[in-house]
Structures are given as structure tokens and as C-alpha cells.
Design a protein around this nucleic acid. Structure first.
Lengths: 228, 228
DNA sequence: ACAAAAGTGTTGAGAGTACACCCATGC
DNA sequence: GCATGGGTGTACTCTCAACACTTTTGT
């Protein structure tokens, strides 16, 4: 950092928020259809300009609220994309975030800069505006990665959940089947969830114990070191 | 992303590059003493404004070259810091990078915005300008983290190195002793280094085999999953 | 000859993985 | 009564961690 001089030509700064949820056995992300040029009519990750007096986190949180009406969710800075030609209008640098929300949230409402807002299932996405395909791929990679060494999976479920639901969430995101007994044992031994004493019933079959995430749990896993 | 309208008041955008090297058994970082207000005379992480036509990576690379005369090093984006009050002059958002270089590099030369550039050993640092203490702490955490699941340690050594040197590097950064036999076995089994056939001699004791990093090695480690 | 540093294997403990059946409930 | 889904234990394999001596070379 920097001289006392301030450059006159500054890039515009935006935040883009990749929002994930699980629904009906699928991973979904919220996209908006652009109402304005450039890329008018294309789908894009929701986002907007950072205001003069707000932090980046606050800007991301505000965009999330405006797009979906949701607050108090998991939100994490992802990466900053700054290729000079990523926006045909001129220099726009974007700080990408990713958010995880539960399926039981109010439906999105299109903002003034979006003609439409809709959930898209992850494997089958439309063409995206700008470099948003790249940003989304990055977000998905990060989600999978975080899932493996962090207790972030709970952010996609409601407060109380069964172990079967949690396992299903992991299987959807990691895209591989998991062993039920091993899953349960490890999760319980890790001491990050606790029984609520309540049960989910109504379906065919026995009632399932409901669990909740232990807020006092420290759920970071040490990676197995290779070096060394 | 965004309407067709472009906001008139944009934050200034800088890159700051935390540069690490190992020297004489210590982890060092390059700091510059600020020649201008604010924080005149304080030590700071080298950095500068992003130019209109360059990517963020290019800006970081340019700053690194200007501060140290070095190119072709390990450089990675770290995090973007955007608190509205982090710079008293006004809104400045900075994209932090971190770089790893070998000790055998030309000495730094102070740029026009720095009164002085000097290497500081990591545990004992002076007071820093802006939020640079926080940025540096973040960079160190990331370095340690990366070291455990990535083959990044080699970036701090010269092209050819002995296993003892590599182990010493790990011990300095992780700040804990490592077992020699386990270290060697695991590293060799991981297949990321190869013998050069040459030896380091001159010191008391037997000659030590020199190794080099295998450029074709894929050196990412799967984390041990906790969830599930 | 002595000090410094390189190199080399084995064992025990713990974690990870694979695998199948019984029982409660709703229809 | 039957289909669905919840819940439970064990054995094997592999990885990880702890640990000490011999040999080479420079002074």
C-alpha cells in the first residue's frame, strides 16, 4: 500500500453471491435473468455494486436480502475476479461470495435489475453472463471442499434434522453414496450434533430421531498431512 | 450482477503482497516503510493501486517485481479486505496476495512510495499501517495451512535441496519438530520429489543427496473427512 | 579421534472401510 | 401383512506415530 496519490480512474466494484440450497434431492442455485444490457436476457449470479459506506460482507448480505429476503445465513467470501475484460461495459472487479440457505425459505423476488429470479438445479445450468460460469464452478468446488473438513452441511438443513436427511445432503453434494453406519458413527463421535428428544414421524416406517447442530461445537478438521 | 448504471463514487482498489522467505532458520516477510501520509514512517505490506488495464494477478506480480525485482514465483490470491474505514484517506479496497520466494534472490530496492524496504523475521514484527497486521496474520495462517495439504514448501527453497533442508523449512513454518524417518518416508512415497544424482558436501558429516521437485507431480492431498 | 550430519526399519495403536439384519410404523 | 425406512456392531486393513543406531566426512 500506496502513495498519497489517489488514481482518478477506478474500477467499479461489485459483489456477486452464489446461493445454494438443497431441495428434493438436488442442489440448486439462485440465478436472475438480466433485465439490462449487457447480456440482457441471460442468466446471472445475483449481485450488485458495493456502496461507499458498506463493507464487502455487508454488501453481500444486502444483496442476498434484496434478492431472496433472507438474512442470518452462512455467507463466506470466495474469491475476487478482476480480469479487465470480464465486463464489456468497462472495468468491473467483483468480489464473489457464497451463501448456504435452507430449503424452507421464502421464494425469491426479482429486484429492479432482474427480470426474473429462479432456482436452477446444479448439473443443468443455462448459459451465464460475464464470467459467471467460472465463478459458479469455483463456488461448487469450494462447497465440496468445505463439506469435507468443516461442519458446513448443517447450513443447508433446517434447525432440526434426521441423520438420514443429513446423509442425503452429503450424498447429493459430494455426488457419491455413503455408508449409513459409518456416517452415523463418525458424526456422533465428532460431537457436533445432539439429540433434540423429538422425532420425525408421518412417513412409512419407524420414527426418526431429530438432531440439532451443537452451536458450541468446534468443527474444523485437521487435514491429514502429506508434507509431512 | 448489476444494472446498466455505473456508480460514480467508486472505491479505490489496491493489491497488497505479503512476501515470505526462509533465511537462517527464520521465516521472514518483506515490509516497506511508508514515505507518505497516512501512517508516514510506519511499516506496511508492499502494494499499490491496480491499473485500469491489468488483472489483479498482474497487478500483484507487477508490485512484487517493483518491490523486489523478482518474477516467476509462487503467488496466490488470499482475501479481499474492504472495511470502509480501513484507510483514513477514503474508501480503499485491497486484494491481498501472498508470495513465496527463495532466499537466494536479489535484495529489495525501495520504490518511490517507500522510504525503505527490509526483511523482518516473523515472530517479531513492528507496528503496521492500516489493517496490515490482520492481513499478515491471515497470510501466515494460510501458509501453514497450505503447507499441510499441498506441496508448497518447495517454493521457499532453491531448485535443488536436501531432505534435511526441506524438513527444516517445514519445522520453521509449522513451528514444531518433525520426525526425520517419517518425514523422509512420506515425502518419498508421495512421489513429489526425485533425486538429482548430485550431492551437497562441504559440511562436516556425510554428503547429502540433492533432490528436486517433480514438476509433473500432482501434490494436492485429500483431507481426512470428518463429515462424514 | 571426535563431532556433526545422513541415512535407514519395525512395531503398536488408532482410524477407516466394508458389510447385513431386525424392528417399528403407515397403509 | 407388507413395504418403507430407522437403527445397530464387528472384523479387517491401512495409516500414523514413536523410536536408535551406524556410517561418512571435515576438522
Amino acid at each position: 500500500m500506496t502513495t498519497g496519490y489517489f488514481p482518478p480512474d477506478r474500477p467499479a466494484l461489485t459483489v456477486d453471491v452464489v446461493i445454494f440450497r438443497l431441495r428434493e434431492g438436488q442442489l440448486e442455485t439462485l440465478l436472475i435473468r438480466r433485465a439490462a444490457l449487457p447480456y440482457k436476457g441471460r442468466w446471472a449470479i445475483p449481485g450488485g455494486f458495493v456502496r461507499a459506506d458498506e463493507s464487502l460482507d455487508a454488501a453481500a448480505r444486502r444483496e442476498l436480502l434484496e434478492e431472496t429476503g433472507i438474512k442470518d445465513v452462512f455467507l463466506e467470501q470466495l474469491y475476487t475476479f478482476g480480469d479487465p475484460r470480464r465486463d464489456p461495459r468497462g472495468r468491473v472487479v467483483t468480489v464473489a461470495y457464497f451463501a448456504l440457505i435452507t430449503a424452507a425459505q421464502p421464494p425469491p423476488h426479482a429486484g429492479d435489475d432482474a427480470a426474473e429470479a429462479r432456482w436452477h438445479t446444479m448439473p443443468s445450468l443455462p448459459e451465464l453472463a460475464f464470467d459467471h460460469k467460472q465463478i459458479l464452478a469455483y463456488a461448487l468446488r469450494r462447497l465440496r471442499y468445505k463439506l469435507e473438513y468443516t461442519a458446513v452441511g448443517f447450513e443447508l438443513l433446517s434447525d432440526e434434522f434426521t441423520l438420514a436427511e443429513l446423509q442425503a445432503a452429503y450424498e447429493i453434494i459430494l455426488d457419491e453414496p455413503l455408508d449409513k453406519r459409518n456416517f452415523r458413527r463418525r458424526l456422533l463421535e465428532a460431537n457436533v450434533i445432539e439429540e433434540t428428544g423429538k422425532y420425525r414421524s408421518g412417513q412409512v416406517g419407524p420414527r426418526a430421531q431429530l438432531y440439532r447442530y451443537r452451536t458450541d461445537a468446534v468443527a474444523e478438521v485437521k487435514a491429514r498431512r502429506l508434507f509431512p
